[in-house]
Design a protein around this nucleic acid. Sequence first.
RNA 1: GGGGUCGUAGCUCAGUUUGGUUAGAGCGCUUGCCUGUCACGCAAGAAGUCGCGAGUUCGAGUCUCGUCGGCCCCGCCA
Length: 587
Amino acid sequence: MQYKKRTHTCGELRPSHIGQPITLTGWVDTRRDLGGVIFIDLRDRYGITQVVFGPQYEEKAHQLAKELRSEYVISVTGKVEQRPEGTINPKILTGEVDVVGMELVILNKAENPPFAIEDDIDTNEDLRLKYRYLDLRRSEMQKRLLFRHKMYQITRKYFDEHNFVEIETPVLMKSTPEGARDFLVPSRINPGKFYALPQSPQTYKQILMVAGFDRYFQVVKCFRDEDLRADRQPEFTQIDVEMSFIDELDIQTIVEGLMKKFFKELLNIEVQTPFPRLSYKEAMEGYGSDKPDLRFGLKFADFSELVKDSGFKVFSESVKKGNVVAGFAVPGGAGFTRNQMDNLVDFTKSLGVGGLAYIKLTDKGIDSAIEKFLGNEICLKICEAAGAKPGDNVFIVSDTWQKTYSTLGTLRLEMAKRLNLTDENKWNLLWVVDFPMFEYSEEEKRFVAMHHPFTSPKPEDEHFLNTDPPKARARAYDLVLNGNEIAGGSIRIFNSEMQSKVFSLLGIGTEEAKTKFGFMLDAFKFGAPPHGGIAFGFDRIAMLLTNSKSIRDVIAFPKTSSGYSLMDDNPSEVDKKQLDELHIKLK
RNA sequence: GGGGUCGUAGCUCAGUUUGGUUAGAGCGCUUGCCUGUCACGCAAGAAGUCGCGAGUUCGAGUCUCGUCGGCCCCGCCA
């Protein structure tokens, strides 16, 4: 097929091009056939240009243009002309000119697309995913992927300028016992043995530090075989970072520098550094989350002291058991109806606590079902502690420390949503630090690492490892943006004795540690430098900075929430021959 | 593993509460007319496995059970 290559893109032509012969290629966006004259909006990734065909220009091209339909791929040669008076379209950048179509070549026809190739389409996501190539043809999707592209460029430039070395680590790695479920890859050459896809290149990057690379980064795919969410895909991209001879502040400063660049170069927003630090304890006791969204208030207060000697046994007994009574003031909540409150009480109960007590503060004073147990004075003190104003409603929960605050945290987010308290124009960045080393897993009946098993304890807490492990805090830090964890890291353990001790606290025996992590313990015996690092959730940052509702909107070919790829029908069954070669028999 | 919600024309949805004539609308599509449109206009037309499978019933888009799929959440995600 003969056709001329384009001389310009569809976003390029301006009045300065008037009179020039040019060729454009692209997709037919819309066609307006007025009988004697036909207008075509021609689209490529750079923009839209209007092409006009008519018998007074070129009869043959006009006849062929009658056949054009949406999404036909064409090449048009013609002349750039000023649009007649009153027909300029200010909505498009090329709206001052037309291309008069003299030669038209239909490069490919197209079936009528299942949904319109335009922004703000109102269609089911499964259809978009099945026809992803059409979805990605839409300008809002192209913009998102271009945004993502810029993020890669900024990242690589930034780390290169700061002396970091990009090193690729294996995708076929050793399965490790801790953390997320691994995706396994059977080894054909080694019957019965498996590789795992990396949950993160954690062990490799630490070994690169032992190797002396000092500053490493990688933009890397990671894989976790866990259930999906709006912000979680089974394969996702991290910016993985590791540094030697540093402390927490060095890592955090490097990270803040990158975030500053992202905001400046992508959104033209200046963010202030350093970002605020909140300890895990402060975050939990203040906002009920280890990734608090501080774009709005609703900060908690602890009422335990106020109620421990009160006549309200539900609270006083609870405090005596070592539990907590805490809550927060809901602005305007005194106006909630009985029905609304019953609904909120049910909502709270569904989160796994006994209930939700509440004290309404009105102009006339306290209005609460628990006033008769607590007394007016304590109720007023609770309102004061919560910072309640007349018209507010203080929500109170009592349970264990963990349950009370995590329930209040969920309730806090729910109330912010219902009352529309979130300022969508705000960007709230903060560090959460001083995480506990361990948390107890009810399911496994043992301690598990809150961050990961290579995380170093804080030096002043090391003694707790022998006496009271849950009290030991880790040298770990998470970066939070608008209530989303977007990066997490730690200063690592770098001597094999400490590493062995932490393994044993995690219930990983000497033998198992040797089998699973022996290579790392060995490496640490040959001169491991002190080191630490962090990993960014690249897709999540892209999602947040582009105001996308889902991580799927910033990934070219994402999976559905059941881990399925609708476009290529994947995962799929394989031939028995393939399984035989892999020594696998299906149950 | 659990909870919620959705599934009707190519698309978005109404119709389901209370089973009953030929399942409708807007957009899109097709055809015709139309020389300055850009949400073109006007006229006509085609288009349905009511997700799928059983069941109840004289009769099921509508009721029951099962099942598949999308989305959101809990668990899970160091």
